[in-house]
Each structure stands twice: as structure tokens, then as C-alpha cells.
Amino acid sequence: MPETRLDTARIRAARRMIDPIFLDTPLFRCEPLEPGLGCAVSIKLETANPVRSFKARGTEIVTSLLADHGPRAVVCASAGNLGQALAWSGRGRGLDVTVVASRFATAAKLDRIRALDATLELVDGDHEMARDRAAAIARRDGTRLLEDSLDIETCEGAATIGLELVDSAPVPSFDTVLIALGGGALAGGVGHVMKALAPGVEVICVQPLGAPAMTRSWRERRVVTTDSTDTIADGVAGRRPIPAVLDDLLLVADDAILVQEASIIAGMRMLLDHAGLVVEPSAALGIAAILEDRARFAGRHIAIIVCGSNVDVDAYRRWVGAAPDHHGR
């Protein structure tokens, strides 16, 4: 395959740095979803862990390396999930963690970052402003700056999901994998493994129509930025794609598609009604893609990575119309 920044042998070795609590997540065929979608669906559930998203696969690698021979402090910008993951991984290794986020980020995510003993700094802008502030803090303090998707550890951590998908059977039963696309670590990581080890599997990235920068960049084969975003899928709402990440994505993605907000909400509702899963909007992008083009996926076997479940309960109720209470009932 063409060379990405990722290395398959390094990805296999990375599993040894990741707390097993984040590895070997459930993968199951979800038949109740299938009549409404017109295709076979397998779910890779990345939410059954202490930070309820896949992001800790990458932060475990970063903090392991820092604990061994790096600065004892690390800073990142986050819409919420990366910050929780870095706080969890850093706390376990005695690192000082600072997370910069928008004050408009999901409150539940911000509360959880604080609860994990990280220093939280809020900016009066969006995620791109948080990225700029995190970089400024790193320069000022000599702190390690963790840049999601640019730092190879975040991509190779996410890529371990791809190893588990491929290793689940002698030959993967699915022919397509639908991957939420934001900064690109998940799509680039899993896509790399698919092209290296299961090249017959189609890799399709899915992004909200209201946050289309990386998809437009993929289509035009050059970085395209946007002035703003407008989507409930805060976890993938970036405006400034990273050139090196786009280069990887161009080598491993077979398609990149945009979906509407109504389809994302419908996907969240389907995952609640038919899979018993409360997910954040980014995790429903794969279902949304099928809902918008049933004919394309008819009769196929689709693997969907359910990537996060850190959702504000009140917002979820507004979108979906029902949700468990804080005790999970």
C-alpha cells in the first residue's frame, strides 16, 4: 500500500502500552438495526470504558512515553473526549494535564475533565481557538503539546481498533467500514489498517454537512478550511484540517460523505431504540450515512465504530425525545 505516516508493526506494539480496559471492545452483529437499514450491521462499541470514547487508546500511548522519558506536563485542546482521555491517562501516570476547551463545549464533558484532576482552561471561541491557546501554553511553559490527529500516537492508538476489527475472524465478515471523520485520527488510523490487512474492505468517512472541512479537503485533494461550523456533532466540528493528516486520509479513504443533522438525530434514535445505546451525535454518523443512501448499502455488511457516548442528557432528550436518567434507568 502507499506509505502513510503510520506503521502496522508499531500499531501492534502500541497495544502493549494501552491499559487493557480500553482494548478488545465489544464487536457484535446488531440484527435489530438491520430491517430499518436494509443491510447487515456490526457495531464496534468504543464507549464501554472509563472515558466513554476511543480517545484513550491514543492518550495511553502518549502518556506512557512521557512517563518514561518526557516532560511531566502535557496540554491539549479538546471538544471534550480527548481531554477526558488525556486526563485519565495522565492522572494514572502522575502527569500534570491541562485541557483547553471552548466554554460552549458540552457541559458534561467539561465536568468530567475537572473530575479527573486536570486543569481546565476555557476560551470564548470554538475548538480552533482552543487549539491556538493550547499551542501558546505549550510554548510558554515548555509543556508537551498533544495535537490530536497530527501526533502519530493518536492515529496509531485509534488504529488498534482496526486491528481488532481485522483480527475478529480469519476473513472479516464485513465489506465496508463507516468511520466518523473529524480531525482524522480515527479514520486515518483504522483506514491504514484496513488497506494494509483487509484491502477488500471499503473505507468510508462520514462527516456532518455543518462541519465539512475535512471532507471537502479530501474531495479537492487540498486543505479546505471553513469560517464556522454548525452541527450538534461537536466531536467532529473542526474548521482547519491538518495537511499531514489529509495526506494520510487521501491514501486510505475510498470515500468521504456528508450527512444532515436530521439523519444524525435519526441515527441516535435508532441506536437507542434498537441497540440500547445512548450515543453522542458523532457516534451516529455511520447510521446517518446508511439512512441517507439505503440503496448504496443494500445487502452489504457494514461495520460501524460507535466512537463516543459523552452526551449532555438534557440535549439528548431534546434531540431524541427520550433518554435514561442519571442512574441509567
Rank of each mutant, 00 (worst) to 15 (best):
G70N: 02
A275W: 06
E34W: 11
V252H: 15
T176D: 14
L65Y: 14
M194R: 02
E60H: 06
S228T: 14
A73K: 15
I304R: 03
R296M: 05
M129I: 15
T47I: 13
P35H: 07
S282G: 07
I61D: 02
R140I: 00
V223W: 02
D148E: 13
L6N: 11
E46L: 05
L23E: 14
A233I: 02
V224D: 10
G238Q: 13
Q207L: 06
I290W: 02
P32Q: 02
R91D: 08
L150P: 00
V100D: 11
G83H: 02
P71N: 01
V51C: 15
D325W: 05
R296V: 09
R15T: 11
T4N: 11
T59D: 14
V311Y: 04
A298M: 00
F28P: 04
T25P: 03
D24V: 07
A73Y: 00
F297S: 08
T25A: 13
E128R: 10
V313C: 08
Q84T: 04
D96K: 13
R5S: 08
A130E: 08
R72H: 03
T225P: 00
P324L: 01
E121Q: 11
A289H: 09
R219S: 14
D167I: 06
D167T: 09
F174N: 12
N81T: 12
P2F: 03
V75E: 12
L45N: 13
V224A: 06
S102L: 01
A295M: 03
T25E: 10
L45I: 04
P35N: 10
H327D: 11
A105I: 09
Q207S: 06
E121M: 14
A134P: 05
E46S: 02
I265P: 07
P241H: 10
A107C: 07
L120Y: 06
D132V: 15
D273S: 11
P170W: 12
Q207Y: 04
L37T: 09
C155W: 01
F104M: 14
P324T: 01
A134M: 02
V306W: 07
S64H: 11
L86C: 11
R93Y: 14
H327K: 10
S309N: 15
I204V: 15
H192T: 10
L258Y: 05
A262V: 10
E261T: 15
I287H: 09
V190G: 02
R133W: 09
D24Q: 12
L23S: 13
F297H: 05
L120F: 05
A237Y: 03
D314Y: 08
A253F: 01
T226A: 00
E156V: 01
V224Q: 08
A105N: 14
L146H: 07
S89E: 07
L209N: 09
V245C: 06
K55V: 14
T119H: 15
S263C: 10
A256C: 11
V278S: 00
G125L: 07
L45P: 00
V279G: 05
D230M: 10
A288P: 07
N49P: 03
M214S: 11
